[in-house]
Design a protein around this nucleic acid. Structure first.
Lengths: 190, 190
DNA sequence: TTGGGACTCTAGCAGCGCTAGCGTTTATCG
DNA sequence: CGATAAACGCTAGCGCTGCTAGAGTCCCAA
């Protein structure tokens, strides 16, 4: 029994190693630089080993995305609980969200922009993902009034996401970012 | 003189043919199906001909994106001018925007999501792109109050873009779409 | 008619995601 | 302890990608 469990543990460690290596490579050089060959070389195994852990490159990206969601949830929670009132909370959480996307562009992309094989808007979505959304919802709640909290949170999230992605794609000028964020907050804290 | 101009005209026609073929292929099967080989076969020329017109696949995508912007501008203008008042105008334009993204997902992606070699948020941006943004700005203007029109338009656009992309990426449930759009409009038409 | 230049083609490079099948290493059982 | 079988990771290779060098053809001007 102990031998088998040791092998399972080693397998799990290697899987974690693959995910971490993929994330580091992506964050350092972007996802286009994450090839199965480079990834295999980095974890010091041959290419086919990757496929004994994951169905394909997409699945590796999905695993990285889940990790990213957990990290984001932690940061959003910290920003929310550190704020003295609801108004500063939504401002702080928004700033934290944008800062996360800015600090981890490749991670953010795989979480929310790229197509990855993950269930998102369903009860089967990864808990880390639901946790991140939950933090946003708790932040929005005091400003919801009579509106549907879930839908309002989704709308606010979408606005943040749009600001982040359009700016990073060069579609919006960086210089007015703070102004835009302020306008958005004004419209959602009315 | 006439011979040279004929050749230039034929060259321009072929370039247009390439762009149209790329767009049709992308709209029918997505950008991952648009390979230089398939595209060359479709226009009945060899691969290298593509590179005598465009620097690379990215440049072809950029040309398609510009075409898409022109189309979008036309549709937004139609929706805006058909509305009887400012409130219905912003609702109609928003609906037209979302409908455009829904009908032309590949086109929308290359315009606003994918990385393409185009100047966006600068005076050198393609006129078609500025026209599309201008339509949005004219729609937002009556609701701007004392706020900076450009920044407010950018913010509203970002919100629409976020709703569209998160929904199409499976991050937002489709069923609450109308509700979310309504909440957004309520917040921006105060 | 002929020389020269513009133009398009064939063929190929390096790299991609992914996998079949071989060889070694490892655990189990007589 | 020694033989057997299975688990495992490797090498090698497939079909594809974007892109390009260089050969060959065609057309226009003198």
């Amino acid at each position: 029994m102990s031998i088998q469990s040791r092998r399972e543990r080693e397998r799990a460690e290697r899987e974690k190693l693959i995910i971490t290596a993929a994330r580091e490579l992506a964050e350092a050089e972007g996802w286009e630089a994450v090839t199965t060959r480079r990834l295999a070389e980095r974890v010091e195994y041959s290419q086919p080993v990757l496929y004994s852990h994951f169905k394909g490159k997409d699945a590796i990206m999905a695993a990285v995305a889940v990790e990213g969601c957990a990290d984001l949830a932690v940061e959003l929670r910290a920003a929310r609980t550190a704020a003295p009132d609801a108004r500063l909370a939504i401002a702080g959480v928004s700033a934290a969200y944008v800062a996360f996307a800015d600090r981890h562009p490749a991670l953010y992309d795989v979480m929310f922009s790229q197509a990855v094989p993950l269930p998102f808007a369903t009860p089967e979505a990864p808990p880390a993902l639901q946790a991140a959304f939950g933090e946003l919802a708790e932040t929005v709640r005091p400003h919801a009034g009579g509106d549907n909290l879930g839908a309002l949170t989704e709308t606010f999230w979408a606005a943040l996401h749009g600001l982040v992605t359009l700016m990073r794609g060069g579609r919006l000028p960086r210089e007015h970012h703070e102004l835009r964020l302020g306008l958005l907050l004004a419209r959602f804290t009315g």
